[in-house]
Amino acid sequence: MGRRKEVELADIVVPPLGDVQEVRVVRWLRDVGDEVEAGEAVAEVEAEKATFVIEAPVKGKLFAILVPEGRTAAPGEVIGKIAEKGDAE
């Protein structure tokens, strides 16, 4: 008998970027509901010195965009969530 499927939510995080207080989310490269592969570029954030391309930490569906384009986030902040479907069989 199959058990209930559990949905794990993985965080999309702005990494530590040094003595940087905030970054701006320039672009989301995927929409909520899109399937993404682990390691696929999902967002671009911009600091004073460079643009950083944030990759999906796991394979799944982009579940939520917590910081939309044009808004700022701090290093370490969760800017989105990916729903990773885990089947606990």
């Binding site: 995080v13 990494p15 530590p16 040094g18 003595d19 390691g39 570029a41 671009e44 010195k49 460079a50 643009t51 950083f52 391309v53 944030i54 990759e55 930490p57 370490g76």
Partner: peptide, 29 residues
Amino acid sequence: IRVEVSDVDTVRRMDEILSRHRLHTVCWS
């Protein structure tokens, strides 16, 4: 001028080790 961020967990682990040893890096400054 773009940098791909692929392994956030290792970056955070490094940050944790450096903070725990109270070390400064020029990377950070």
